Simulated scan of single mutants.
Amino acid sequence: MRVFEFLRGKKGAMGIGTLIIFIAMVLVAAVAAAVLINTSGFLQQKAMATGKESTEQVASGLSALRVIGIHDGSQINYLAIYISPNAGSAPIDLNQTKILITDGKEKAVLKYGGSDKYYNLSAGGEVTNLSLAAWNLSAGQFGIIVLQDADHSCQPSTPVIDKGDIVALTINASAVGLDLAPRTTVTGSVIPEFGAPAVIEFTTPASYLDTQKIIQLQ
């Protein structure tokens, strides 16, 4: 009974002080909610961007279809690496692509030589025609010969390859310091801006025949 009498004698806090405390609590809750919403939105966008980049990195890349060489009877002077994007790959900019290649003694890092090192076979000719501009290379350069490009995405100044495209990347082995004598093991890769690289690995023949100037190496 005394408890009830004690409670009946109490009154709720009223007045401006209580109102200020109530408003402060509401404001703190609102600020906390806004921070949580902004943080969750930022994290969601970051996760989506990371997922997209990871998918591109895994699904994209290049595949080496074959490698051919042109020799002078004693060593291989020119190489052509046929590449194509992997299935499901995003478009790949060859301006941002590098070729790493070594003969075990010398190592070369090559980049696209520019629009004057480009040729499209739709204009006629053969990949192995050394008079094409794509073979006129200096140290540190590779050229591009377009074999298949239905949507015309691979242009001299913007050499982008996508689904179904096939191009040959040309290398002047002598100009970059490679000694491709018989029985030489060559390794390397064609590394795109993102995605899996195309692997190069072959051993040159035991001898070079004068009747067969063009040989398939890989």
Rank of each mutant, 00 (worst) to 15 (best):
A32H: 04
Y78W: 05
L19Y: 04
G113L: 01
S60T: 02
S157F: 11
I200V: 11
Q212N: 15
T55W: 10
A139L: 09
K105M: 04
I81D: 01
D151W: 10
L36N: 15
T102S: 09
T55D: 09
Q45T: 08
G15C: 03
G125Q: 11
M14E: 14
E126R: 15
L147A: 14
P156F: 11
T39W: 09
G125M: 08
T211I: 06
V58K: 12
A24N: 10
V31H: 14
Q155R: 14
R183G: 11
R66I: 10
V176S: 02
A33Y: 12
V176D: 02
L121N: 03
D179V: 13
V160F: 05
I76A: 03
E193R: 12
A29H: 07
V176F: 02
Y82R: 04
Y78F: 10
I70W: 00
Q96A: 04
G104I: 04
G113A: 06
L217K: 09
Q75P: 01
E56K: 07
D151R: 13
A80L: 01
R8A: 12
G61W: 00
N129D: 13
L121Y: 03
I92T: 02
L178M: 08
M48I: 14
F202G: 07
F4T: 15
L217P: 02
M25D: 13
A30L: 11
T204A: 12
I161C: 08
N120T: 06
G164V: 13
I21P: 07
Q96D: 03
G143C: 03
L110M: 01
Q148K: 15
D162Y: 13
V186M: 12
G17F: 02
V186A: 11
L65R: 05
T55I: 07
G124K: 06
G9M: 08
